[in-house]
């Protein structure tokens, strides 16, 4: 039996250990990067690419905390999560010499407060979070977040919300006019009461299903990211993305260099590769958000460049999600748990 165990161990080690060289392991949002682009990188740099996916910034953090740090080379956290990962010491830094294409970054995304001077991250795509309706199923007025948080009777049981406390509670706060990361008791109680009251009308919590439920008609309205909604529309579904009068969440996803990356060199090559306008545009064409890189214009599909989802009216207010301090975050966590009990 000993021999057999040894053989198995060796076989498993071999199966796992093609990882020695020419590898890159990415931890990425789901349905966001086209396989062709990964193949292109693979071919150009002779690197074998493996990718895992997650469906929320919080899930990314949880996985890294639970022993995955040191297994991945790069990840794609949203703005506030870059700050959290940085504060947790989970990011590595690079020098401008290691990232020749650093100059391609659009000026407004260069000196961001979640990573001043872009020492650990590069911009990937940015977009917004709001909600969409399936206009075949609901044709009433739709200009307010109230459709999600104080829904009319006809939408009851036909709403999907994102399964992430950060975005869902932030949108709820915007609707209720409550500032983010508040520690004011009455405001938190009001927020709690708002989502508790809305929950009965919600059919499901799901981020990865957000598009499918709207396309298939399982939901008539649902929180969703701008590009994801655009994809639903380009698949031919009557899905309309709404810019609510209360405002929406604006976010930027960033490619970060993770600490203890097993293939740091390839990670840097990959990040630099993504700063090429043509490659950044390939992601935009696929995921239908907006790139943070100069010169992508000529590579964009016209219908993506002019999509209503990516070109909000000028008067829509957009805010970034903030990373709350611990003593405040626990209260938001409590509201979330209470909501899902």
């Amino acid at each position: 039996m000993k021999t057999f165990l040894t053989t198995t161990a060796v076989a498993l080690a071999l199966a796992g250990a093609a990882s020695a060289e020419g590898k890159l392991t990415i931890y990425h949002w789901f349905e966001y990067i086209p396989q062709e682009l990964l193949d292109k990188f693979s071919a150009e740099y002779d690197v074998e690419v493996t990718m895992d996916t997650y469906d929320s910034n919080e899930a990314l953090l949880a996985a890294l905390k639970a022993g995955r740090l040191g297994s991945y080379d790069v990840a794609v956290p949203g703005d506030y999560m870059v700050k959290i990962l940085g504060d947790e010491g989970m990011l590595d830094t690079f020098t401008p010499e290691e990232m020749p294409n650093l100059g391609n970054i659009e000026d407004q995304w260069m000196d961001v407060d979640f990573d001043p001077g872009r020492k650990s991250s590069i911009p990937y795509q940015w977009g917004s979070t709001s909600f969409s309706v399936n206009t075949e199923m609901y044709d009433g007025p739709r200009d307010s977040l109230g459709l999600i948080f104080e829904p009319p009777a006809e939408l009851a049981g036909k709403i999907n919300v994102l399964d992430t406390s950060g975005e869902t509670l932030t949108l709820a706060s915007m609707y209720a006019g409550i500032p983010q990361c508040t520690s004011d008791r009455d405001q938190l109680k009001a927020l709690n009461a708002l989502v508790q009251g809305a929950k009965d009308s919600w059919a499901s919590f799901g981020s990865d299903v957000a598009k499918d439920v709207l396309v298939s008609g399982d939901a008539a309205a649902g929180m969703i990211w701008s590009g994801f909604s655009a994809k639903a529309r380009s698949e031919g579904a009557p899905v309309e993305y709404v810019f609510p009068k209360e405002g929406m969440i604006v976010w930027m996803d960033n490619v970060v260099l993770l600490k203890d990356a097993p293939n740091r060199e390839n990670a840097l090559k990959f990040m630099n590769f993504l700063l090429e306008p043509e490659n950044a545009a390939a992601v935009t064409n696929y995921a239908q958000y907006t790139a943070g890189v100069k010169g992508v214009g000529e590579f964009l599909d016209p219908e993506v460049a002019t999509s209503p989802e990516s070109n909000p009216p000028a008067d829509v207010k957009g805010v970034f999600v903030q990373a709350c301090p611990e003593e405040v975050q626990v209260m938001y966590d409590a509201i979330w748990t209470e909501l899902k009990k």
Partner: peptide, 19 residues
């Protein structure tokens, strides 16, 4: 499971979560 490793059930689950 570790980074980059899926078995059939986890791969199917990941896919089914999107519909």
């Amino acid at each position: 499971k570790g980074a980059g490793i899926e078995t059939l059930p986890t791969a199917i689950f990941g896919s089914v979560k999107q519909g």
